[in-house]
Amino acid sequence: MERQLLEQSLADHHREAYLWARQCCRYDDEQAKDVLQEVYVKILEGRARYNNLSSFRTWLFAVIRYTALDILREKHLVIVDEPGDNDHPALPADEPPDEPVDYEALLRQLPARQAQVLLLAFYHGMTLEAISTVMDISLGTVRTHYDRGKKQLKELIALNPVQDHGRR
């Protein structure tokens, strides 16, 4: 892909790329900015190349996710891709919240992979096939995370009713 076309594609997807980077960084704006800048440098310097095997958006999301993982690991921060945490929420969900719960707080209570699968499916409107490409996991595993995530999030919503969907 030519550089100008690449820059145009990145500019077109910038907003949702930033939001996805933020979601990969556990909603940390500063980290998301760093991740996205690193992603753009990687792509424009040719260290990450689009191979036309998936849509540009799917590929870009995969690059963002991997870069976020790398940067967070380098900084010894929370690892967003902790495997083996599929069955238990990261935070106890049975504690009654003192403040009105927002969306991000609810999603943080899900295991990272489940939250990411749900975000990609419901928020970004991706198919399960595209999600398996972004997450680099099998379709079966995506389905498992998807079903478990849905079940857990529904329970969390029931436990923490988001008034007017938690708009602040």
């Binding site: 007017d164 938690g166 708009r167």
Partner: peptide, 11 residues
Amino acid sequence: LESFFDGMKQV
């Protein structure tokens, strides 16, 4: 869930 994520998008 769709309603939940729609609300999140609005935020």
